[in-house]
Computed example of a mutant assay.
Amino acid sequence: MVELHGQCQCGQLRYRVTGRVATLFACHCRDCQRQSASAFGMALWLGDYQLTLLRGHTAQWARHTPSGRITDCQFCPQCGSRLFHQNRDTPQFLSIKPGSLDDTAWLRPVAHIWKQSAQPWLPLPADSLHYAGNPDDFADLLAAWQQAPGDCRA
Rank of each mutant, 00 (worst) to 15 (best):
A126N: 13
V17K: 03
F25G: 09
R34A: 15
W145H: 13
L51A: 10
R69V: 03
A132I: 06
D127A: 14
S128T: 15
M1C: 12
L142S: 07
V110M: 07
Q92D: 11
I70P: 05
L142C: 11
L4W: 01
F138C: 08
G47R: 05
A148G: 07
T58S: 04
W106D: 00
L142M: 11
F93Q: 02
H57F: 14
P120D: 13
A37T: 08
R69K: 15
R108F: 10
C73N: 15
V2T: 14
R14W: 10
P120K: 06
G99E: 03
L129N: 03
R14Y: 10
M42N: 09
Q74L: 15
Q78V: 14
A62R: 13
C76Q: 06
W121D: 00
Q78D: 14
F40E: 00
L124G: 06
T71R: 05
G80M: 05
Y131V: 03
N134T: 07
C32G: 06
R34V: 08
W106A: 12
L122Q: 13
L122I: 12
A43M: 11
P149Y: 01
F25H: 10
H64S: 13
S100I: 08
V17H: 02
P109T: 02
F25M: 10
R82L: 14
D102M: 06
D89G: 07
S38V: 06
L53D: 05
W45S: 13
L83V: 14
T71D: 05
P120C: 14
S81L: 06
Q92L: 04
A126H: 10
A22P: 12
A139T: 07
S36Q: 07
V17I: 04
T104H: 02
G68Q: 02
K97E: 15
P109S: 05
Q7K: 10
Q78H: 13
A148R: 04
D137Y: 03
F138L: 11
H28L: 01
Q35D: 14
L83S: 04
D31A: 07
H130C: 05
A39C: 13
R16N: 10
N87E: 12
L94Y: 03
W114T: 05
Q33G: 01
L94M: 04
D102Y: 04
Q146V: 12
H28I: 00
R20N: 13
D31H: 02
A59D: 06
A118K: 08
Q74I: 15
F93T: 00
A126D: 11
L129C: 09
M1D: 09
Q35A: 15
D137E: 00
Q60A: 14
R153K: 15
Y15H: 02
A62K: 13
K115L: 14
C10G: 00
R16Q: 12
S81R: 00
N87K: 13
F75D: 00
A26H: 08
L141H: 01
C32K: 02
V21W: 06
H57D: 14
F75S: 00
Q74D: 14
L141F: 01
C8G: 01
Q9P: 05
S117I: 05
R63K: 13
G80A: 02
G133E: 11
A111P: 03
N87V: 11
G6V: 00
T71N: 05
I113E: 05
H130T: 01
D72Q: 12
H112M: 05
